[in-house]
Design a protein around this nucleic acid. Sequence first.
RNA 1: GCUUCCUUAGCUCAGCCGGUUAGAGCAUCUGACUGUUAAUCAGAGGGUCCCUGGUUCGAGCCCAGGAGGGAGCGCCA
Length: 465
Amino acid sequence: MSLRRTSVQALLGSQELEREVVVNGWVRTRRGNKYVQFIAVNDGSSIHNIQVVADAEKFPEESLKDVTTGSCVAVRGQLVASQGKGQSVEIQAAEITVLGKADPEEYPLQKKGHSLEFLREIAHLRPRTNTFGAVLRVRHALAFAVHQYFNDHGFYYIHTPIITGSDAEGAGQMFRVTTLPDQNPPLTEDKAGVDYKQDFFGKQTNLTVSGQLEGEVAAMALGKVYTFGPTFRAENSNTARHLAEFWMIEPEVAFNDLQDNMELAEDFLKYLVRYALDKCADDLQFLNDQYDKELLERLRFVVDNDFQRLTYTEAVEILKSAKKKFEFPVDWGTDLQSEHERYLVEKHFKKPVILTDYPKDIKAFYMKLNDDDKTVRAMDVLFPGIGEIIGGSQREEDLEKLRARMAAMHVPEDELWWYMELRKFGTAPHAGFGLGFERLILFVTGMANIRDVIPFPRFPKNAEF
RNA sequence: GCUUCCUUAGCUCAGCCGGUUAGAGCAUCUGACUGUUAAUCAGAGGGUCCCUGGUUCGAGCCCAGGAGGGAGCGCCA
């Protein structure tokens, strides 16, 4: 087989028939009778399979014994118009080589559907299913679209550190990074604790929970930047919307205010959804048919309609006058619960919502204080079924106001001296936000659990694979 | 971390009020069938009813503890 192999995707779209081709891939099903066998082969390039036809004259049953669901094959043959109804082209096989057998008594994947919970337990094989193939292709397309969008809009991609020396980022519990021995680590002189001065970096270090603070450093020099990297949270979160390791996209823009920030967030999200609709039509159609009959309709709705913008204070008024009884009371000054956000997005407005100007006490220290001295220029973008998909703000650029907020919220100045110096030297208004990449994929694919939109999910009590 | 539900064949699940030998569909194996489309048809094999203990003449079913999983909530993106 010296002929170069062609992808299934390319073959299915080919107009040049009656030519010899080679395709490599994994067998999804084999069916037929004693005269002719049909083998559905998938190589991951498409949700669709190519049908390989093996006539019994050339391929006696014995020769196809190892061509079973899950096995890996190399096929050489003629690409021809299909005699059957389900496909336009197929391969009339001349040679079939089994590259890797898959004992049908043991291979866990079958032609018929499996539960997503079961597939989670065989994460090393689940990419071979239609569903995960579709999800992973969509995931790729969206990652590519993120870079495309920012590059087209003059942003620079900044690599912020994975290992961070500050534990003051204010976004939850962190994973410790250390090379000290876990048995008898060196202790401080007063024996009160571990002496991290002797650790690899000479101080306590952790995995990052956000690239934002370093992103601000870059924005104060390059103007428009974004990060796109892994993020780690050691929270004991057990929900369908949380992971311990996830990917986050964080643009940060000098001279942007909160309005600009909202414009960017909405335009960016619509671009990403539109990109998926354009580039992943087959995969999204499959997901629409299999999991969520309203998926495509919902995606088009988001692209075609403006997000609803209102302040936290206005949202509280709406919720207070709502007829619905909430489990948790709504009060100005407390954070909104999931049920409140869902009511606003799914019942009241029936569209994505951007909430702004939250009470200062429930938001992070770096958010810019409004003139009312009560609220900050924060924004949360809420999506149906997902909840918060973006959280962001205009940042406090005034050194003294920032210092006062840090003191009030017990954020240690000495660890963030460099962050404060951004305000000391050539400060500028700026704003940014964080988009949870997996939450975006959840929305675009219609999947229900965030553990099903990342190849190797990390969550409490689970780091298999 | 809290609340709640689930765990029966390789997979998805049924199993009545606690009662004799635990069932179905799919998968697998065998056979039939000249173009199938998650092929179809016939037959066969396949069980630590999650684990431990208890109640009972008798437990897949009731009770207690444990393990694993799901959903909701909290924290958040």
